[in-house]
Design a binder for these strands. Structure first.
Length: 472
RNA sequence: CGUGGGGUAGAGCAGCCUGGUAGCUCGUUUGGCUCAUAACCAAAAGGUCGUUGGUUCAAAUCCAACCCCCACAACCA
């Protein structure tokens, strides 16, 4: 039995959960359930990122204490994750005292690679952030959002010497010791790595207070990424406990926009601590809405809760795991969603279960239990490569194939002609194959798989009381 | 000359690495079946594979140039 550790990106809690978070959770959940089905022991982390200026300001705007604000939002994410049926084992919060203490200790362990330096650049007091030189030129020195001229600011920050590890990181990526999926992202990161400068990992308290104070320097607070990335190991108990049972992680799931932090800065931190790198970093794509990126300004944001409420959780998981490519961007439209639900879940699968169950029940067919549930080789290959949408296609092929076989083998005419033995044999074989497909379905749609199992579990086959997927 | 991805039937995509008569799902049309959620099965129609050139007996696939779309480069997954 292997021990495996799977992680998700911890969302920044200045907003509500959206569909992108759901994507991350669902993929990681499939991975976790798959390995559990293989007999492995799985630790599965979820959490929330709760420090930083934006959160601080948002709480101020709402006129509530910051801690109260993050408590409330973190809770929102937690209940969202539960609504998605995500089988996590650990929930980490970056404002927990344990995390904060561990992060400070991690910082101290890294001190050989940390140095202080001056930073000088253009700053917008409206946006409260530094802007790039290029941006400065494009906007002629005036912030377009705030109509204020940029100011030249100077501050002292701590820097992490990524340069110390660049060569090792490059080797790890090239050799797939830390496998980046998909391959084209790997190429992108390798290129990016070359030009990555040392990273500023703190901010003066004059600018940012809501964060973890730098050990031994009350005037500086850790930059959010430093704090956030560490969650993957602080939740395991690092540096207090020995984490070698669980670390390195089997797979870390992240959105493509934050891949760079996880494949450059994060490995550099791990190397600084003398820890191994994660085995795999999976970068998934974005969910588009009518072909465009979801954005509040355009007003095309699709609320995940709304989508779940439309046809239920299983339908939600179905769509985002099968019709949204694991690695590339994919589109969501309500039309496609209901098409997938009605044509595929209801007609293909729901109806298949119904017809087999009814046939078995009407003709008193008894089903011998199959004890050995196995995944097909091709399925295992795809799942191990995290090509979940493809693996799901494979399962669906089996389901469609069963509908074909029922038509070919015509069990109803066997029944009419009183060919009992042949009927039993035929039904047994069909139901066996359905249950095998159902087994492969279970990491994707655990609820549905459970129900289907129940239909054929007893001595007598009991068709579902209500359709698995009522048409809508 | 920033980096990366994409351009294949009405729509969404696979195939490209490892060249060899162009494939899947949905939709459309026609036929079949009746166990089933008017579900299921079969057949047909529909594409000069972004453009141009090159390599080759042979290019969607390899090479070159160009055109168009998208994402990232700034803490919206």
């Amino acid at each position: 039995m292997k021990k495996r550790y799977i992680t998700t990106a911890i969302p920044y809690v200045n907003g509500s959960p959206h569909i992108g978070h759901a994507m991350d959770y669902c993929l990681a959940d499939v991975c976790a359930r798959y390995y559990r089905a293989c007999g492995d022991e799985v630790k599965f982390q979820i959490g929330t990122d709760e420090h930083g200026n934006k959160i601080f300001q948002k709480a101020k705007e709402l006129n509530i204490p910051v801690q109260e604000y993050v408590d409330k939002n973190s809770e929102k994410f937690k209940s969202f994750v539960e609504k998605l049926g995500v089988s996590y084992t650990d929930f980490v919060r970056t404002t927990s005292s344990k995390h904060e203490e561990y992060v400070r200790r991690i910082w101290q362990k890294l001190s050989n690679h940390i140095y202080k330096d001056k930073y000088e650049g253009w700053y917008c007091t409206g946006c409260e952030r530094y802007i790039t030189e290029k941006e400065y030129e494009e906007n002629d020195g005036v912030c377009p959002d705030h109509q204020k001229p940029y100011e030249k600011l100077k501050e002292e920050n701590y820097y992490y010497r990524v340069a110390d590890f660049k060569e090792q990181i490059r080797k790890a990526i090239e050799s797939d010791k830390m496998l980046i999926l998909p391959d084209f992202r790997k190429k992108e990161i390798l290129r990016l790595l070359e030009e990555t400068p040392d990273v500023s990992i703190s901010r003066p308290t004059s600018q940012l207070t809501w964060g973890v104070t730098v050990p031994g320097d009350e005037t500086q607070v850790m930059y959010v990424w430093m704090d956030a990335l560490a969650n993957y190991i602080t939740v395991l108990g690092y540096p207090e406990e020995d984490i070698s049972d669980w670390w390195p992680a089997t797979a870390q799931f992240v959105g493509k926009d934050i891949l760079r932090f996880h494949t450059i800065l994060w490995p550099a931190i791990l190397m600084g601590l003398g820890l191994p790198l994660p085995k795999t970093v999976v970068s998934h794509g974005m969910v588009l809405s009518n072909g465009q990126k979801m954005s509040k300004t355009i007003g095309n944001v699709v609320e995940p809760i709304e989508v779940i409420d439309k046809y239920g959780l299983e339908a939600f998981r179905y769509y985002f795991l099968r019709h949204v490519d694991t690695f590339a961007d994919a589109d969501f439209t309500w039309e496609k969603y209901s098409e997938a639900y009605n044509n595929e879940l209801a007609n293909d699968l729901g109806n298949l279960v119904q017809r087999l169950a009814t046939l078995a029940q009407k003709n008193n067919v008894r089903i011998d239990k199959i004890d050995d549930m196995v995944f097909s080789d091709e399925y295992v290959r795809l799942m191990d490569e995290c090509k979940y949408a493809r693996a799901f296609d494979l399962v669906w092929e089996k389901i469609q194939n069963l509908n074909k076989r029922i038509d070919d083998e015509k069990p109803w005419s066997l029944a009419k002609n009183g060919e009992v033995d042949q009927l039993n044999q035929c039904m047994q074989s069909l139901i066996n194959d359905l249950l095998l497909a159902n087994y492969e379905l279970s990491p994707f749609l655990p609820g549905t798989a459970e129900k289907i199992k129940g239909v054929f579990a007893g001595d007598e086959v009991m068709p579902p009381e209500s359709p698995l997927f009522p048409k809508g």
